[in-house]
């Protein structure tokens, strides 16, 4: 699976049929991602968040199929983290160690810029990084139909509807660009608020038309009529059990430590302090690292996994 995905005569993406590295059942990936996000967000301690981010990066690098790149994700993740740190630095003026001072007359950002608010913003950004990397396998390692397969049976139709709606967002953007370019060629120029009606109305109508067409196509393919195939659902074997067990143990450990009142959070105000670290919580983060140690099997690399 190298290069851009090709489109076949049937309109299906050739990449969907290429060998995949995913030979852990999608449902196990879903549980792993949810557990990792729970661990990353149940506390605002930057050390735990950093460990989760490292674990998720290891897992991604282990399971990322050939031909897929991390560059776009890395750029998006780093920009999000930097933005979070910058916003907190500019908007929060609490803290003892003043780095610089903006004129008080400036709305919102005026006042002292402190080391503590920068550190807190950095911790927020690290949480974003950890959470984004934790859910990245669902889009980078799995195929979209794998994600739908990972949903519980009762939520399958909801999952398809949500996935379809999300796909329409990018379509909406494309339609907007096309309509705007077409209107420009007809002499339209962007002016006031009213002038955008000439672009937004056709875009909206096209989007509705696309939605209706998609719904008709899905209905024609018997969407909602129940399963008509004996195609085997993904197997849940020893690897999946180990991955899910370790991930759930990590999440339960973090939630349990929090309920028991063990200091987990970090508050840098009013003066910077070192985050509290519980050795057991660090060990819990290791439970999430199991997929990075397992890696795809040779069979998984060759034929696309047991469920493929």
């Amino acid at each position: 699976m190298t290069g851009a995905p090709r489109t076949t005569a049937l309109g299906l993406r050739a990449a969907n049929f290429a060998p995949r590295a995913a030979n852990i059942a999608p449902r196990a990936w879903l549980v792993w991602s949810l557990a990792a996000v729970t661990v990353a967000l149940v506390t605002d301690n930057p050390v735990y968040r950093g460990l989760v981010a490292l674990v998720a990066l290891d897992v991604l690098l282990t399971w990322l199929p050939r031909g897929r790149r991390l560059r776009r994700l890395a750029v998006a993740v780093l920009l999000s983290a930097a933005l979070a740190a910058l916003i907190d630095l500019l908007a929060s003026h609490t803290g003892a160690d003043v780095l610089a001072r903006l004129p008080d007359g400036l709305p919102l950002v005026g006042g002292p810029l402190t080391l503590e608010s920068l550190a807190f913003g950095g911790a927020l950004g690290l949480g974003l990084v950890a959470a984004l990397l934790a859910v990245a396998p669902l889009s980078l390692v799995l195929e979209p139909h794998d994600v739908v397969d990972a949903m519980p049976g009762s939520l399958e139709r909801t999952g398809i509807a949500v996935a379809t709606s999300l796909n329409l967002i990018s379509g909406f953007g494309r339609t907007f660009t096309e309509v705007r370019d077409a209107q420009r060629m007809r002499g339209w120029k962007p002016g006031g608020f009213r002038s955008w009606n000439e672009v937004l109305v056709p875009t909206l109508l096209t989007a509705i038309e696309d939605s209706v067409r998609l719904a008709e196509a899905m209905e024609a393919r018997a969407f909602g009529a129940g399963r008509r195939t004996s195609y085997a659902a993904s197997a849940f074997g020893a690897r999946e059990a180990v991955v899910v067990g370790a991930a759930l143990a990590a999440a339960i450990l973090f939630v349990g430590l929090r309920i028991l009142g063990v200091p987990m959070d970090w508050d840098p105000y009013p003066t910077l302090s070192s985050p509290p670290i519980h050795p057991l919580a660090v060990v819990g983060c290791l439970g999430l690292a199991l997929p990075a140690l397992l890696g795809p099997t040779a069979r998984g690399r060759a034929v696309g996994g047991r469920h493929g």
């Binding site: 050390v47 950093g50 460990l51 490292l54 674990v55 509290p276 670290i277 050795p279 660090v282 060990v283």
Partner: peptide, 14 residues
């Protein structure tokens, strides 16, 4: 702090 020692070891390994 022992917690920091464990975290440093695990973080380094990861």
């Amino acid at each position: 702090d022992p917690g920091w020692l464990v975290a440093a070891g695990v973080g380094g390994a990861l």
